[in-house]
Design a protein around this nucleic acid. Structure first.
Lengths: 181, 181
DNA sequence: ACTGTAGGCCAACAGGTGTTGACATCGCCA
DNA sequence: TGGCGATGTCAACACCTGTTGGCCTACAGT
């Protein structure tokens, strides 16, 4: 059966996102992605040019941070914790970035960019002293990424066993302190 | 010049640890490790049998946790934060495990084992309720590993800029709360 | 019905990987 | 001195990777 160009491109991109998220950059081969998409490997090249460009297309990520200044100030920590849990479970993009950023300097740079462009300003808006804002954003990132690492990537059993509410209950005050105290 | 068998084995292991720590499992090729050790790739095979076994030898890690119950109870958080900073900066083993555990299920399993065998008991000794101990150990791991990820692997600039004292100051209370409150 | 073109497949290339076996050479011991 | 095992080198293997170019084949426009 024949498909439209845009259709197959979308099919390839979906398969690529799944493979990159599950295996990381090196182990997610073009041949495996093509097999998942039930298509010839050469089609991937035709539509995306190279493996690098395919990855770039698959790794587009938006944190979708809500406007934290619009919330009651004492609830931002819990709100942030809940928001990140949602984002991690609904968007493979975070997993893709983490799995490959750890061994790929270019992707690590991309993560630094996302961090600086999205979490940095949010912290600056919350924190009174602008000089302290980057450090506080960094601290918050360390806790959020660490939880994602342990729960979704390394799958430490006690961390996987935690409910969404328990995580918000424990991480909320931590993030609250990092960002506002 | 001729070397003893044990000498070259040690040279290979040192080069392997550096490469695995810097590049992760896939990108650290046996040829590159051999070149660093100024030796033929086939020697690596002769002395370690396979790349997998070489990695297993290079990835031996001991957290060297101090006996937290011997410390004043209100200082365990800060002590743990300081201890982990030291371990990360003096031992490449942590970096090796993190860089490859993220995309290698066997190594992730090994990290789960280290966590359960070393951090778990420490949390159990500190926490009154044994049922809560694993969860608390997991929370502490998420903050410690997240800090290592942001500072040593992703190198987020504001996190790299933090001094040792600042990190202890910020993470100490967090770990204290996770483990004892 | 004919044809041009877009969508898809196949086979191959060049380079890199872990791994292996045959060969060389040094230094000790009889 | 002669020989032998340990130490090291070389070339090749089989496989897998990203990538390329040529070849089909179905369909839309005339």
């Amino acid at each position: 059966m024949r498909r439209s160009s845009e259709d197959t491109k979308a099919v390839i991109l979906t398969a690529a996102r799944e493979r990159f998220a599950a295996d990381g950059y090196e182990k997610a081969t073009i041949r495996a992605i093509a097999a998942d998409a039930e298509i010839d490997p050469s089609m991937v090249m035709r539509y995306f040019g190279s493996k690098d460009k395919l990855f770039a297309a698959a790794a587009e990520v938006d944190l979708r941070l809500p406007d934290l200044t619009a919330l009651p100030r004492e609830t931002v920590g819990a709100a942030l914790a809940a928001h990140f849990l949602d984002r991690w479970e609904e968007d493979e993009g975070m997993m893709i970035l983490l799995r490959t950023g750890v061994t790929n300097e270019a992707v690590a740079g991309r993560m630094r960019g996302i961090f600086a462009a999205q979490l940095g300003p949010a912290a600056a808006a919350l924190c009174g002293d602008p000089a302290q804002a980057p450090a506080r954003a960094g601290l918050a990132a360390s806790q959020v990424l660490g939880m994602a690492l342990c729960r979704y990537v390394l799958r430490l059993p006690p961390v996987v066993a935690l409910s969404r509410e328990e995580i918000v209950h424990w991480l909320g005050p931590t993030l609250q302190r990092y960002l506002t105290e």
